[in-house]
Amino acid sequence: MSRLRGSRVVIVGGTSGIGLATALAATEAGAAVVVGGRDPERLGQALELLGPGAEGHVVDVGDENSIEEFLDAAGTLDHLLVTPSRLVPVRVAEATEAQVRPALDLRFWAAFHASRLAAPRMTGAGSITFTSGIAGSRPIPDEAVAGASCAAVEALMRSLVTELAPVRCNVLSPGYVDTPLLNGFLGASRDEKVAAIAESLPGKRIGKPAEIADAALFLMGNDYMNGHVLTIDGAHTLV
């Protein structure tokens, strides 16, 4: 029997990509799922996929008050997953603050506000999981901003392990995954770039959202996983 059965899982950024895949997997595991996203239309589409047992609310992850209203609507919870991110392909020497600040702010402040506001709403010793990415530990051309935001979230998690105890805190660090976020990052030459990335990996492919979702559920369901950055990248950090 799944260890998540009967639990309440709240996903900030749960209407597409890794967040939606995790919502689907958690629903299949018997959890009650609450998802949040900025776009009402996409939220409605996600709820159709998740079925009548799921719940969803619009949330602006860049707005502290909106996150608080979302969590108020979600109610008590056992597990929180925070996925919002934005990729800005730019070289530091050519970047402006106006270009990079939205990407830095989105990932960090979504994690910061969601975790501090969710912790008091948790039933017992729940879990908080953030998403980062391999750019936080492996230099990747044009992804310095993404790397900095990933590293910031990972550092935040380590402090929260003691501050929010007994709530467990972890980070899920994916490699390249076939999501709308990746499509927007790679642009018109997406297929060619994905093919090149896949060719460089031992498995000759990029990841699937469902594979990352499996790892997210593991972090939620294993009561001894705490203070860890779990990398799931097809060995990208080794090649």
Rank of each mutant, 00 (worst) to 15 (best):
L43T: 01
H236I: 12
T237N: 06
G221S: 15
R158Y: 06
A25R: 14
S115Q: 03
L156G: 07
M225P: 08
T76Q: 14
V12D: 04
L87C: 06
G75M: 03
I18D: 02
V59Q: 07
C169I: 14
P52N: 12
G203Q: 13
N65Y: 06
M1V: 11
S127I: 06
S7C: 08
Y176W: 13
I232R: 11
L71E: 06
R168S: 05
S85Y: 15
G53C: 07
A98Y: 06
G175E: 09
A148I: 04
G56S: 08
L49W: 02
S127H: 12
L104W: 07
V100I: 15
A119G: 00
P120A: 06
Y176F: 14
L106H: 00
I197N: 02
A216S: 10
T179Q: 03
L104K: 06
V9L: 03
G13S: 03
C169Q: 08
L20G: 01
E211F: 07
A155L: 06
E199R: 05
P209C: 04
A210G: 10
G203R: 12
T162H: 13
G62W: 06
C150F: 10
G133S: 08
L24D: 03
F108G: 01
S200N: 07
A165Q: 07
T96A: 07
M122Q: 09
I18W: 14
I197S: 05
D60Q: 12
P209I: 04
G36D: 09
H228V: 13
F70G: 03
S159L: 06
T15K: 06
E69Y: 11
G6F: 10
R190M: 04
R190E: 10
E154P: 02
I134C: 11
L172I: 04
A26W: 09
G126E: 15
G136C: 08
L181K: 09
G75H: 10
A119F: 05
V145M: 09
A188R: 14
I134D: 12
R38Y: 15
E55D: 11
G51C: 07
